[in-house]
Amino acid sequence: MMAMDEAVRQPGAAPVVLRLDRLRKEYRPGLPVLKDITLDFDKSGVTAIIGPSGTGKSTLIRCVNRLVDPTSGSIWFEGADIAQVRGSALRAVRRRIGMVFQEYNLVERLTVMENILTGRLGYVPLWRAYLRRFAEQDIARAFELLESVGLGADFANRRADKLSGGQRQRVGIARAIMQSPALVLADEPTSSLDPKTSVEIMELLADISAKQSIPVIVNIHNVELAKRYARRIVGMTGGNVVYDGKPDGLTAQHLSEIYGGEEWQ
C-alpha cells in the first residue's frame, strides 16, 4: 500500500533532521486524527504533505513544534525526543523550528521590521524587546532577509496591515528564516493567495530552502504546486500516510487513493 522510495530513506544518504515515530493525536479519545505516523525527514529540500482537508496534515505539522500536543509517539529532533518537553526546553526547540502560516499570522499592528525581528524574540531579553533594541547584526540580517524575500528596505517601517497577501507571506517567511531554524514548517502557505502569487511563494520557499540549506515541510492542497517544487511528496488520507516518495512516482491512482472521489485540483 505504501509506495516507498528507497532513495529518500537510504541510510547515510542525508542525516535525518526530524523523525516521527508512531505519532498519534486524538482530539477526542478514541478518534485519532493522526494514526501512528512514522516518517523521517532528511536535511534538505522541500517535502510536501498533500491530502484532503481534515486529514490531519495541519495537526501533523503543528505537533512538530508542539502548537498541538501529540497523544502518543515520539518526535526526534536534534538528538532528543521533543514530544513531551515543556517550558524553556520547549521554547528552545521552537526557536530552532520556523513556521509559516496559511493566513500569514503577522502581528497586524506591528511594522514589517518588528514582525521579522519577532523571529529573534527567543534570544532577546524582555527589556530589549520592549525598547526594540535588537542587536545590530540581527537588524542587518533582517534587512538582508527583507531583500531576499523580494521586498526591499522600503518596507521596513510599513505596518503589516497595510500589505497585500503575497507581501505578508513574504514577511512571514522572513520571520521564520530570521530564527535561523534547523527546520521550517509551512502550513498551507499558499491557500489564501491567488494562483500567481502562490507560485511565487512556493518558488521563494524552495529557493530559500536550497540557498540556506534549511529543510522545509510544507502542507499543501495544490498537487501541481507540490509536484513542481517538492523533492518528496507525502500523501495522507484519513490520518494515515498512503504515499511517500518522489513527485514523479505520484500517479493518478495514488491521487485517487489520497483524495478518494474528491476533486483534487
Binding site: 502548537l67 526547540v93 521552537r94 523550528i97 513556521m99 499570522n105 502581528v107 519577532t118
Partner: peptide, 12 residues
C-alpha cells in the same frame, strides 16, 4: 493566530 505565530518562534 497572531499570538500563536509569536509563540511558535519560541518566545517566552
Amino acid at each position: 493566530k497572531q499570538v500563536e505565530a509569536v509563540r511558535a518562534t519560541g518566545a517566552g
